[in-house]
Structure formats: structure tokens, C-alpha cells
Computed example of a mutant assay.
Amino acid sequence: MTEEPRLSAQDLIDRLAPVLSSRVRIRAVAALLAGVGGAVFVGTLWWSEPGPLPGRTHLAFALFTVFCLTWATYGGWLLTRRVPLFAADRVIAAWIGLAASLATTAVVTVVAVQRGTGAGLALAVGGLLVAVALALAVRAHARRAALLRRMHELTGGEER
């Protein structure tokens, strides 16, 4: 009677590598479509605005277009991955969200101050968004660290 060869933890990980879970695939497609759709929408608004626009309006349109294209790039990158990500995708998404919330808060606060409406509400709402994004970034880093520790334990410290 022949016995099935035993697979090491690294062999199991390598066998799972080409498979992208449906949850990750759905997140990737959603990020890609939302990013492309948002970039087209914001770009069309920007292009179709009548008359000369103030500099801060150009800055805002450019910033939102960059954010949308960043999400589209992230979604495309995620769809092309064929290796275990160990939550790197979540860390990247958290940093994109944190950068977007910080930049948006800064732009909205500057606009509010320039209009003379005060920065209080802009800073309060922006601060809340930044706090949530920061909490998600911390959580994503902790999850990634836990997964990498677990992989290290399962592989006996072997390097990939």
C-alpha cells in the first residue's frame, strides 16, 4: 500500500497561490470599476465646466481624478496578483484611503477658510474621516503582521 506524499505548509500555500478568492476578486473589480467610473465622471465635469475656473477648483478636480485613477490602478493590480497577498491588499487600500481623506480634508479646509465660512465643520468632518482611515490602516497592518507570523510558524521560518 502506497502512502500519499505529505505536503509541507509551504507546498500548500504554493498550491493555493494561483487562486484569487471570490471576495478579493469582487473587491478588485469594484475598486477598478469605481475608480474608472469616478475618473470619467470627474474628468467630464472638469472638462465641461464653462468659463475659466479658479485655481483651487482645478486643484480639487485634479485631486479627485488622481484618487479615482489610484483606486482603478489598485483594482487592476489586485486582479493580476497570483500570489498570496497576506493582507497586503488591505494595507495598500488603507493607505490610499488615508491619503485621500487627509488631502480632501486639507483642500476642503483651505476652501472654507478662503470663503470665510470657518474651518470648524471642515476639520470636524475631515478629522472623523481621517480617524476612521487611520483606524483601518492600523487594523490592516495588524492583520498582515498576524498572517505573516502565522506563515512563518507554518513554514518553520523558511524564506519564500
Results as ranks from 00 to 15, higher is better:
32 L>A: 07
32 L>F: 12
32 L>H: 03
33 L>I: 06
33 L>S: 01
33 L>T: 00
33 L>A: 04
33 L>C: 02
34 A>H: 03
34 A>D: 09
35 G>L: 08
35 G>K: 08
36 V>R: 09
36 V>M: 14
36 V>S: 12
36 V>A: 13
37 G>H: 01
37 G>D: 03
37 G>N: 04
37 G>P: 00
37 G>S: 03
38 G>C: 01
38 G>D: 04
38 G>H: 02
39 A>T: 10
39 A>C: 12
39 A>V: 12
40 V>M: 09
40 V>T: 10
40 V>N: 05
40 V>H: 03
41 F>K: 11
41 F>I: 08
42 V>A: 13
42 V>T: 12
42 V>D: 01
42 V>L: 07
43 G>M: 04
43 G>S: 05
43 G>F: 02
43 G>N: 02
44 T>K: 02
44 T>Y: 07
44 T>N: 03
44 T>L: 03
44 T>S: 07
45 L>D: 13
45 L>I: 14
45 L>V: 13
45 L>E: 13
46 W>H: 15
46 W>M: 11
46 W>I: 08
47 W>L: 04
47 W>K: 00
47 W>D: 01
47 W>V: 01
47 W>E: 00
47 W>R: 02
48 S>C: 02
49 E>C: 06
49 E>L: 01
49 E>K: 06
49 E>D: 12
49 E>Y: 08
50 P>W: 06
50 P>V: 06
50 P>G: 14
50 P>K: 03
50 P>H: 13
51 G>E: 13
51 G>I: 09
51 G>H: 09
51 G>N: 12
52 P>E: 15
52 P>A: 15
52 P>S: 15
52 P>M: 15
53 L>C: 10
53 L>W: 15
53 L>D: 15
53 L>Q: 15
53 L>N: 15
54 P>H: 11
54 P>S: 14
54 P>F: 13
54 P>V: 12
54 P>W: 12
55 G>Q: 08
55 G>R: 10
56 R>L: 09
56 R>N: 11
56 R>D: 14
56 R>E: 05
56 R>F: 11
56 R>K: 14
56 R>Q: 14
57 T>M: 15
58 H>C: 00
58 H>S: 02
58 H>G: 00
58 H>W: 03
59 L>K: 00
59 L>N: 05
60 A>T: 09
60 A>P: 03
60 A>V: 11
61 F>D: 06
61 F>S: 11
61 F>G: 12
62 A>K: 05
62 A>H: 08
62 A>Y: 03
62 A>R: 09
63 L>E: 06
63 L>G: 06
63 L>I: 08
64 F>I: 04
64 F>Q: 03
64 F>K: 01
65 T>D: 04
65 T>W: 01
65 T>R: 02
66 V>H: 05
66 V>Y: 12
67 F>E: 03
67 F>P: 02
67 F>K: 02
67 F>G: 02
68 C>D: 05
68 C>A: 06
68 C>K: 00
68 C>M: 06
68 C>R: 00
70 T>R: 10
71 W>A: 06
72 A>C: 08
73 T>K: 03
73 T>H: 06
73 T>G: 09
73 T>W: 13
74 Y>K: 00
74 Y>E: 00
74 Y>D: 02
74 Y>M: 01
74 Y>I: 01
75 G>W: 05
75 G>P: 05
75 G>V: 07
75 G>Q: 11
76 G>R: 00
76 G>P: 00
76 G>A: 08
